[in-house]
Amino acid sequence: MTAEVQPVARPPFDAELRAGLAVVGGMFPPTITPDLIDFMRVSYAAPPIEDLLAAKGIVCTDDVVVAPDGHEVAVSVLRPKDAPGERPAVVYAHSGGLMFGDRFSGIDLVLDWVSDFGAVLVTVEYRLAPEHRHPYPFDDMYAALEAAASRARDWGLRRDRLVVAGASAGGGLAAGLALAARDRNGPALRGQVLDYPMLDDRGTTASTHQFDGIGVWDRVSNETGWTALLGDARGTEAVSEYAAPARARDLSGLPPAFIDVGAAEIFRDEAIAYADGIWRAGGDAELHVWSGAFHACDIFAAHTSVGRAMIGARNDWVERIIAD
């Protein structure tokens, strides 16, 4: 008769990562409600990047590409300073829940591809929600992808070795780019790197409900992000698969996908389902589900054994695809 409440059953966080949350929680609360968007825009803004680029021997050139509505989207083209000529390239969408962050947020890990594999990185200042709803963030990214192909010579890129990549919200955008490039006969892609991607606006998976109020990016944060992007359309049949790639009915004909995700985060189930969908359609996907990992733990706690393993597995895959 007693009203005992069973705690939510969920996989535990890794011990080193749980320790990391004591620090991460101070700048990235588990539950992001709309009133915290301004706080997050300050806390998640990328720090100055010049010293890091200099230490890694990377040259940064700023440019703009034009979105379908005429908006000029800022992009940075980052290349190794001692690698002239046309290089393999990655078009990158940053993390930040579609509402915060900038084109240098979480860039440290991606810079390894420039310094270690000689890639050129095109990172994009796509417009943010809620001020700019779908399709603006997606259109900005697609404009950058098209520019990477059409201005390949200018930017020193190899059109035949083009990859899209993104983390979290950026992972969802990267998956949308791969779908759109297929549907529109757009630039040929050699791969898509989807780090713990934000794919599904419906919020109905088991993992979405297992991590409520804890870790990084919980159910409520996800609702905040999708509502910012889609408004009242969130969860309805009106949502485009370029905004929420989990809704895509056809996952055939896509470039090889690398998908990683934590076992202890809300995106676990949608990431697994997306990889499974690609396999069922006869495609190529490599899926890593990291035990004990919270969302984006490789960005926040790269020093941990789980963080290092995640970064190592991803870099091995990227090296296979793009290195000379």
């Binding site: 990391g20 620090v23 101070g26 700048m27 720090p47």
Partner: peptide, 12 residues
């Protein structure tokens, strides 16, 4: 995490 501590200090 040093960088995250710096962000926390800037916020508060």
């Amino acid at each position: 995490m040093q960088e995250l501590l710096g962000r926390i200090a800037r916020l508060d």
